[in-house]
């Protein structure tokens, strides 16, 4: 009974067009995009998991429907004390739903921080570029962009994969693989994989630190 109940309850909410009993007897093809996404969420929750991975759950939806789905996920999280991993490229959604953010580039996590800190004070040049290219967040006529394209990671990284596009790249960037280090040298809550950090050390010292840390990992 629980299995029938739980999807029904999730499908309810703003599923105004059908009543709960009608909803469970309806085919997916008769649903709108938002309702289908609800059905998928109901499926994911049927076995009462503790972790839910949401892979771009709202990217294909309109903003008003996106708002409904985000609200639903927040309610479910509250109700069930669920951990959610939210994968998306929409910075607005990230800012609204997450507590902590990992930024990925070409197969590696290059920066990790609490969401407020990341948006207020991004450290990795890629994160900065990404946040700056959002239209509406900048005043100038031209939108700022990141030159070049994302490489296809075919081999394990021996250097910084962002170096060819990085406005701050220097020589060592093409030789040494940066490790995730605390940006201010102490706080493990905000780490970035960039040879510019920790920022309390000189560049030479920082490079040495990354090299030592990388070597220590058995590379």
């Amino acid at each position: 009974m629980r299995l029938i109940e739980s999807p029904g309850r999730i499908l309810e909410g703003s599923s105004i067009r059908y009543t709960e009993t009608e909803t469970v007897r309806t085919f997916a093809s008769e649903f709108s995009g938002g309702m289908r996404q609800r059905a998928v969420i109901a499926m994911a929750l049927a076995c009462e998991p503790e972790v839910l991975i949401c892979d771009e759950p709202t990217t294909a939806l309109d903003v008003t429907i996106q708002a409904q789905i985000l609200e639903l996920l927040a309610e479910i999280q509250e109700d069930r004390d669920l951990a959610i991993m939210f994968i998306t490229h929409d910075m607005g959604v990230i800012a609204n739903v997450t507590d902590k953010v990992n930024v990925m580039y070409a197969g590696e996590i290059i920066e990790t921080a609490e969401v407020e800190r990341l948006f207020e004070n991004p450290k990795h040049p890629y994160t900065r570029g990404l946040l700056e290219s959002i239209p509406g967040s900048q005043s100038g006529e031209q939108l700022r962009t990141i030159d070049g394209n994302v490489p296809t990671p075919t081999e394990s990284a021996t250097d910084c994969r962002f170096a060819p596009r990085c406005p701050k790249a220097f020589e060592e960037c093409t030789q040494i693989h940066p490790e995730l280090v605390p940006v201010d040298g102490e706080d493990e809550d905000h780490v970035a994989a960039c040879l510019l950090y920790p920022e309390d050390r000189s560049t030479a010292k920082a490079v040495e630190y990354h090299q030592r840390k990388g070597g220590g990992d058995g590379r």
Binding site: A67, G92, N96, T98, F119, S137
Partner: peptide
């Protein structure tokens, strides 16, 4: 309904 790319922004969302 547009999510603002600013985690500190507090706004009253009207959910349709």
């Amino acid at each position: 309904a547009i999510p603002e790319p600013d985690p500190t922004a507090e706004k009253d969302r009207i959910t349709l």
